[in-house]
Amino acid sequence: MKQRTLFEIVVLVMAVAAGAVGPRACAKEVKLLNVSYDPTRELYVEFNHAFARHWKEKSGDTVTIQQSHGGSSKQARSVIDGLPGDVVTLALAHDVDAIAERSKLLPADWQKRLPHNSSPYTSTIVFLVRKGNPKGIKDWDDLVKPGVKLIPANPKTSGAARWAYLAAWGYALKKNGNDEAKAKEFVTKFYKNVPVWDTGARGATTTFIQREIGDVLVGWENEAYLALKEFGADKYEIITPSISILAEPTVALVDKVAKKNGNETVAKAYLDYLYSDEGQDIAGKNYYRPRSATALAKYAKQFSQVELFTIDELFGGWQKAQKTHFNDGGVFDQIQQANR
């Protein structure tokens, strides 16, 4: 009798526990966290609305997507440190590699899981100057002239800044017959002209536009167009250099986090939807270069023609570029040391 009473109590407690916890598992409201880099705020605000609508029609579930933005590498570090992103949409593949390598939250071959090496849209590095182009900026060479103040972000923390660094390096390599020493000399001069070190692309935009510092904002093409749209084409001009880099921001499912949150299916669908017609159209509308031929054709007029090289062509991929240039003690650190 005594044992039966105790048994009944245990069963009762478990039933109460199941009652309190159970309904959450069956909830039709889903919350997803997208950890992204700095200038994608506007893109994902629009895309999230579209996806939520699409998902509601498809599954009946209401999905709310929360966004987290910051310098790409900083964001990767946050995920490694525990920020529970179901998906990451970062500026460069190396930052996602770092998450896979250090936290094991997703497999090492994550990049093969989605088309175009998990890069649903691309961009490049351009120059934004003040109206009238008072410093006469036309190409990379003009950026290393004395007295020209450049505003890129810090390559240690920002994906855009890393792409900008590699774009400058690539230009110098191509101009000087792949002479690494001359490229280093060029990039050293480039960073000598930097007065402020923002941690992310959006911060650099703030420095250039709102704080009115510097002559040239060196950064994302999409960010430059957004600045024109938001702050006025009568105040700024975009200068497209003769050569630049094909920047391929990447997206990935953070498997273990999504699984733990019960969001695996919706998170996968979220990333897949970036490749849909609507997803590609939204990317183009927000000044990212879409992958789909249809969307690219639709928005072709808004992008200048520029010769683009890839990171694989000139730097042997992200792993190598990261190790050579951006790791502690790498070429960028040496340049900084030389400029002090």
Partner: peptide, 17 residues
Amino acid sequence: EQKVKVMDRNRELTEES
């Protein structure tokens, strides 16, 4: 003016950091 703005912005970034 640029120098002052740069100083202000760097201070701002230092505070953010």
